[in-house]
């Protein structure tokens, strides 16, 4: 996996933002013996594409004021939309890192990055324009989506998220017969991106045909 996400053309994010997100995604989902992490999975590309969609401006959310902060039980009440949360949040976190450690987040050592992320998660860093926890929770949610959503959205490259779980992606017509069977159903995952690239076989009904994995081992 190879190709750095930096080579992609980004729709919304700037280069420093991409560096931040690749570094953060790699700490949230690190590369290890179970497979690639958030960086190589393309989480930054995923977040970029989402930010450029109507979700990036909360197009289907209620957006009228007044905007009191509310209680945690009342949910999202920030006047900022995701595009602003990422743009402002990354900028202010990098400012914090430069102020505190002399360099932006992506240039810190992994342990230090973990410390910063933990402090954001716990709301221990005071950002000027938004809640650190709000930023972190959104970043974690989007990183998770970017790692496990269909690769057609830019993340989950080579279906690494699905391979990690043993999730076969698009369902096959064989599921119905297998419903009450206890033997593990192990298949090479198939994505919408595979279908679009003509790299998957479909049956007459539109279900994908799975290629079964022979080995009984696994993760």
């Amino acid at each position: 996996m190879s190709k750095s996400a930096m080579l992609d053309r980004y729709w919304f994010l700037t280069a420093p933002e991409v560096r931040f997100l690749e570094a953060a995604a790699e700490r949230l989902i690190p590369t290890d013996e179970h497979g690639p992490g958030g960086r190589d999975a393309g989480v930054a590309v995923y977040i970029d594409r989402q930010l450029a969609s109507i979700w990036g401006v909360h197009g289907r959310n209620y957006r009228s004021g007044p905007w009191p902060e509310g209680t945690p039980e009342q949910g999202f009440q920030s006047p900022l939309v995701p595009q602003e949360i990422y743009r402002i949040g990354i900028g202010e976190i990098n400012d914090y890192c430069v102020r505190t450690y002399d360099r932006p987040f992506d240039q810190l050592a992994a342990d230090r990055q973990d410390e910063v992320l933990t402090a954001l998660e716990k709301g221990k860093i005071d950002l000027p324009s938004l809640s650190a926890k709000l930023f972190f929770d959104l970043l974690l949610r989007n990183t998770d989506e970017g790692y496990f959503a269909d690769p057609i959205y830019g993340g989950n490259r080579d279906k690494v998220g699905w391979k990690l779980l043993g999730f076969p992606g698009l369902p096959s017509a064989a599921y119905r017969g297998h419903l009450d069977k206890s033997e593990p159903y192990r298949a090479e995952p198939v994505s919408m991106l595979d279908v679009q690239r003509n790299e998957a076989q479909l049956d007459a009904e539109g279900f994908v045909k799975h290629v079964m994995i022979k080995t009984s081992g696994g993760k």
């Binding site: 700490r27 949230l28 989902i29 690190p30 290890d32 179970h34 973990d114 992320l117 998660e121 974690l140 990183t143 998770d144 989506e145 496990f148 959503a149 998220g161 699905w162 990690l164 779980l165 043993g166 999730f167 593990p184 993760k219």
Partner: peptide
């Protein structure tokens, strides 16, 4: 489904290497 249905035992961190390991082990 892979985004919303990944149960991990209590005490598992929300992110990082231990979380990833727990997700891989417990999904199935």
């Amino acid at each position: 489904l892979p985004i919303k249905s990944k149960s991990v035992p209590h005490g598992t961190p929300r992110w990082g290497a231990q979380w990833k390991k727990a997700v891989a082990h417990n999904y199935r």
